[in-house]
Amino acid sequence: MNVVIAAKKTTLTAGAKRRLLKNNLAGYAFIAPWLFGLLAFTSIPMLYSLYLSFTKYDALGAPVWTGVQNYVTMFQDATFWQSVGVTFKYVFILVPLRLATALGVAMILATKHRGIGLYRTVYYIPSLLGGSVAIAIIWAQLFGSQGAINGMLSQLLGRTVNFNWVGERSSALYSLILLGCWHFGSSMLIFISGLKQIPQNYYEAALIDGASAPQRFFRITLPMLSPVIFFNLVMGIITAFKSFSESLIITDGGPLNSTMLFALYIYKQGFSYFKMGYACAMSWVLLMIIAVFSIFIFGSSTGWVHYEE
């Protein structure tokens, strides 16, 4: 094996060698800003948080080494397990739903129409109101027992419906998923940009060949957009796993922890309850979970993501 590489190396011409060196230099030069930031601002805090995960640390005094105690506690902590379950449900329903909505709306709003900029803005605005207290009030008001949704249902069904959609265990999480889905604006914007980057002449050529609309979608749009879909999928999963501000503001993890997202539980342990060591340990478990999914998606990407290379 080594011999083969060595042999291969020796066969490289001087020019190719110089080229390799030049590539390496250029590569590091381009990523230098990020590399600097990583070394100066990110790497130490990350490693430190890993260290803290093996300590008892309340953020006020010095951390006390406790070995794997935090990890052991975690596996015995019923709320931790519940939050993992809640988070999986949240992620796996929300991400596909939001992605599909964003793509659908983006396809429509990437067209040329009068006032298209205004529509885009209007559809993007909910994402700007994300975690504000106004949303909490509106959600409680729309989905509460006396809310507008029940008003409509009562009209439709002809009998009084006073089910508290945000307040009951069976439905609270779904009302948050709906809220997350309603924030499709960011993904939509990225899809619109992606659609705009597809060269128009591809479509013109396809039209000349007599391709139907679905054919054009599956043969041109989908493959050409696949790097962007891939991006939105990966980032969608990462953000969904890490999201907590909506559930913090609206339900505060309740009722009975049925909306206790993993990241919210981390936040509460670290900030409300001053268990920073425990919060760090859970954060690293979260990192592992997301990493596993990311690796899986990256692995699958060679099969469906189409790059121009």
Binding site: L38, F41, P45, M46
Partner: peptide, 17 residues
């Protein structure tokens, strides 16, 4: 990987830096 940790747990060491 740097995107996967919640910023909250990085906050205090970052502050110290």
């Amino acid at each position: 990987g740097t995107m996967l940790l919640p910023v909250q747990v990085l906050m205090i060491p970052q502050y110290v830096i």
